[in-house]
Structures are given as structure tokens and as C-alpha cells.
């Protein structure tokens, strides 16, 4: 304390103190800068390492099986069949169904949060729904297999079959509960909070003036939402949808627990068990016996990575466009 005062009051002392210090710290800045660059670069390094490692380990399968997995349904290591079509079909089917349920729900909730309720209520409701995103996949799986599956099997699926809808082929067969339908519903609830949060954020970026102009013209809340906000935030909402899509494609635990898994067929009915890429990986990989099977499953993981990467890139492009159009950085 007192020595500091002395330094400042006597010019000679201060100069003598700062000169060596400044010299010493001259290395500090470049060093710090390069250190942070190195840290930032690890994520890129990790991704290239991931691609490299997955390609290297699936090389055997790519070499031996060629494109056969992409054209064959059956997966049976005992007979050397490594078809991936049933898994891919299941992944896309559950994802599309989950999106069909989750997107309208998420948009409706976002409308409520942005336009209809008091900001305080909006915050409480919004946080509760965000909490749904924090619930781990395995918990959804436990809830799904012990609560939702019996409910589906005993009540909801027989009920659907009793209605005129039941005559449709897609609701045929005996209700088992562990099926594509249940998996899609659980999946939709898992991605709901993500789509809701992002659409709420982009809808909030719509300038007030634009909406007020709509209200001033005598539009109803729905009309302002539909014809002004949604149009203004369209790119952002598309980004939100693709983000949800990417999540749904890779979701593993809950889906593998309720879809029945290891049924390598193309299901004719939604009430039939099936499998997805991630469920196939989760259930077969730890038990894989031969090098070829391991390799073919790593190839499946690589395919899943490429698919989600494509959707992620599309989502980012749309969101970036939304940001440019609305001129916000949020």
C-alpha cells in the first residue's frame, strides 16, 4: 500500500518499476492469443478426428459390403446380413411423425409465450417447458417404457382402432405398445422444448412496430401471428425446425426403449415394433461378435453423423439468414 504510493509520487521510482514489467509482459499477449486459438481449434480438431476415426474403422465394412447395407432390410450377423435400410427407414419415420406432432405444438406454445400472456407468466411457462429439455433421455425412456407403453397398449391404441381411423392399414395389427407410434410420441415430447425455445426467440425478434401496424389495421392476434410475425420470422422458424429434426434423428435411449428395437423390417403399421439407426447401434454394438459386424455398425454411426451434419448445416444457414434479415445478433 505505502510502497505503491511512493511509486506514483516519485517519477523515477515509477519508471524503474514499469519498464522491466512492460518488457516482461510483452510476451503475455501473443502467448495468450495463441493459447486461446489453440483451445478454440480443438473443437475443429475433434470433429476431423471423429470423421477420420469413424471412416478408418468402417473401412472394412465399406470395402467388403459396398452399398449393400443401403439397399437391404435384414440385419442378421449370423447370416452375414448387415442391412441398414430398416434402421434408416425407422429413423426417418419416427422423426417425421415426431415433427408432425411437435412443430404445431411448439408454434402454438411460442405464440402463447410471445403474444398472449403477461411477460411474467410467459417466463414461468417458458422455463417449465425449457426444463423438459433438461430431462435426460434415460428418464424419458423409463417413463416411456413403464407408463406410456402400457397406456398405449391397453387404452389408446385399441381406442384408435375402434374409431374409423382403425380401418386404415397404418393403424392395423395387434397393439403392442412398444412400437413406432409410441416412439414417435415420446420423441415429439423430447424435441418440443427445443423447437419452442428457438421459435419463441425468433418471434420475439419481430419488431413491435410491424406487429402494431397489423393490429392497427384491425387484425386479430392470429392474423398478426400468421401473416406478419411468422412471415417475418420464417427463416428462423425453419432453422428451429431443422434443429429439432437433427435432435430427433440422433435420439437414442428413449427411442430404443419404447420402439421394440431389433425388429429389422419395414413396418406396415405404426402399431408395429421397429428400430432406428441409433437403437440398432445401442442394442447391437456391445454384443457385436465379428470385426465385420463392428465395422458395419461404425459405418452406420458414420451415416447417422453425416445425416445430422447435413441438417445442422441447413439449420445454421437458415438461422443465419433469419438473423441477417431481422438485423439482430440474438
Amino acid at each position: 500500500m505505502s510502497s505503491g504510493e511512493v511509486d506514483i509520487s516519485t517519477p523515477g521510482g515509477a519508471g524503474a518499476q514499469t519498464r522491466p514489467r512492460r518488457h516482461h509482459f510483452a510476451f503475455g499477449d501473443p502467448l495468450f492469443r495463441w493459447f486461446t486459438i489453440a483451445c478454440a481449434a480443438t473443437v475443429a480438431l475433434a470433429m476431423f478426428l471423429l470423421i477420420g476415426v469413424l471412416v478408418k474403422n468402417s473401412w472394412l465394412a465399406i470395402h467388403v459390403l459396398g452399398i449393400k447395407p443401403l439397399t437391404h432390410v435384414a440385419y442378421n450377423p449370423d447370416t452375414n446380413q448387415y442391412g441398414a435400410l430398416s434402421s434408416l427407414f425407422g429413423t426417418f419415420l419416427t422423426t417425421i411423425l415426431a415433427m408432425l406432432i411437435a412443430v404445431p405444438l411448439a408454434l402454438a406454445i411460442a405464440l402463447l409465450l410471445v403474444e398472449l400472456v403477461h411477460p411474467l407468466v410467459s417466463r414461468v411457462v417458458g422455463t417449465t417447458i425449457e426444463m423438459l429439455a433438461a430431462v435426460p433421455s434415460i428418464i424419458f425412456g423409463m417413463w416411456g417404457i413403464f407408463i406410456v407403453v402400457p397406456l398405449m397398449q391397453r387404452h389408446i391404441e385399441p381406442w384408435i382402432q375402434a374409431t374409423p381411423l382403425g380401418r386404415l392399414g397404418i393403424f392395423g395389427g395387434s397393439p403392442v405398445g412398444v412400437d413406432v407410434f409410441t416412439a414417435s410420441i415420446v420423441l415429439s415430447l423430447m424435441i418440443l422444448p427445443f423447437i419452442t425455445a428457438v421459435s419463441r426467440d425468433v418471434l420475439q425478434m419481430v419488431p413491435k412496430v410491424v406487429k402494431e401496424a397489423g393490429y392497427g389495421m384491425g387484425s386479430t392476434t392470429y392474423e398478426v401471428m400468421r401473416k406478419i410475425s411468422m412471415r417475418y420470422a420464417l427463416a428462423g422458424i425453419a432453422g428451429a425446425v431443422f434443429l429439432g429434426l437433427g435432435r430427433a434423428l440422433g435420439e437414442t435411449m428413449a427411442v430404443s426403449m419404447v420402439i421394440g428395437a431389433n425388429f429389422f423390417t419395414i413396418p406396415h403399421s405404426l402399431f408395429q415394433s421397429g428400430t432406428t439407426v441409433s437403437a440398432t447401434l445401442a442394442l447391437n454394438f456391445p454384443e457385436s461378435q465379428s470385426k465385420l459386424e463392428t465395422s458395419s455398425l461404425i459405418e452406420l454411426a458414420l451415416i447417422l453423423f453425416v445425416i445430422t451434419m447435413v441438417f445442422q448445416v441447413v439449420a445454421q444457414l437458415w438461422l443465419a439468414r433469419a438473423r441477417r434479415m431481422t438485423g439482430s445478433r440474438a
Binding site: 481449434a41 474403422n57 440422433g250 451434419m309 445454421q316
Partner: peptide, 25 residues
């Protein structure tokens, strides 16, 4: 900008693929 884009892609990698990566690595 490049690192940010890669970060976003890695953010979207399914967790099971991350497990497969650690397994293979």
C-alpha cells in the same frame, strides 16, 4: 466464423455418435 460453424456442427452430433467416436479412438 469457421470455428463457430464447426462448433455448431459438433453441437448437433448425436450423443451415441460421440460414444462411438470415443470407442473407436
Amino acid at each position: 466464423t469457421g470455428i463457430r460453424a464447426v462448433t455448431n456442427i459438433v453441437l448437433g452430433v448425436p450423443s451415441i455418435v460421440a460414444g462411438m467416436f470415443a470407442y473407436a479412438l
